[in-house]
């Protein structure tokens, strides 16, 4: 090979690769609107993106897996956590996490309510972008599984269960849904007494529900324990468990998406499973 040939090789390979790359780039632009729901990019979403940049969120968090590795990925956070929770959290993260427990905390960002609303619009838009199935399983902020005492408890490990089959007992099937629904119930609820995570422990929920309905403090429409559990799943705000960690302004922090994302059968199975905790 001569120097001339080597030079031709360098120029030609660069030119061909660049050409192919440019053609694919142009083609990608024709696909962006559909893949990213571009019509959903409202002024609020754009404003939220600017807030995202202004407060340097990218240098602690990742979004679409890009950024820094000091804080959790936020690509799907708006699907995992409702608006009410996110608003309350961003006003003051210190109310929800303890630096002494996790050795890390998001500093208070002094965001205005408008900025928070825009951020949530932006994060909601981001959560609907087609990311080719990434992340492969939901990235949760804290499962509480490493909390003192929790790890030793049986039944709290988040290992996927065996495959479900139609012959399964509804309770077993319900346990599977509990672990694998999106977002997983297990992410917020333990079934261990006293281990309250983002939601209350569901240990003993069946008896507790009966007492609650009998007590007169109950605000929903259910007539029995099973009905109460069903209602808690499909309409979390119908009755609210007291606690600043659990709700704000009459809105439960539990996602209100299950009525749609779960089938009737799955909800039946969940009810059966939870009714088993007496």
């Amino acid at each position: 090979m001569t120097t001339r040939q080597a030079r031709m090789f360098a120029i030609a390979s660069t030119a061909i690769a660049a050409l192919v790359f440019l053609i694919l780039t142009v083609h990608s632009h024709t696909r962006f609107p559909a893949l990213t729901n571009a019509e959903a990019i409202t002024p609020a979403v754009v404003a939220g993106k600017d807030v995202w940049h202004r407060y340097n969120c990218i240098n602690c968090h990742t979004l679409f897996g890009e950024g820094a590795y000091y804080a959790p990925d936020l690509t799907k956070i708006a699907q995992l956590r409702g608006d009410a929770y996110l608003t309350a959290y961003m006003r003051d993260p210190g109310q929800f996490y303890d630096e002494r427990v996790h050795r890390r905390l998001m500093p208070k960002q002094n965001l205005s309510d408008q900025e928070i609303a825009d951020l949530i619009a932006f994060l909601s838009w981001a959560s609907n972008v087609d990311t080719q199935g990434w992340p492969p399983r939901p990235i949760l902020v804290a499962t509480g599984l490493a909390a003192p005492g929790a790890a030793e408890q049986p039944g709290v490990t988040a290992v996927p269960t065996r495959p479900v089959s139609p012959e399964d007992d509804p309770i077993a099937a319900g346990e599977n849904v509990f672990k694998n629904a999106t977002p997983a119930c297990l992410a917020c609820h333990s079934t261990t007494p006293g281990v309250n995570l983002a939601g209350p422990s569901l240990a003993g929920i069946a008896s507790r529900a009966e007492e609650l309905i009998a007590s007169g403090e109950y605000t929903g429409e259910a007539e029995d324990a099973a009905g109460y559990i069903r209602e808690s799943i499909v309409a979390p705000s119908a009755h609210i468990i007291p606690g600043a960690m659990y709700s704000a302004g009459g809105m439960s922090f539990m996602p209100a998406t299950y009525a749609e994302s779960l089938s009737d059968e799955e909800i039946d199975q969940l009810v059966a499973y939870l009714m088993s905790f007496r």
Partner: peptide, 11 residues
């Protein structure tokens, strides 16, 4: 990503 522990618990 595989066991499904929370981000903070993992860290």
């Amino acid at each position: 990503r595989i066991v499904g522990l929370g981000y903070l618990d993992t860290q």
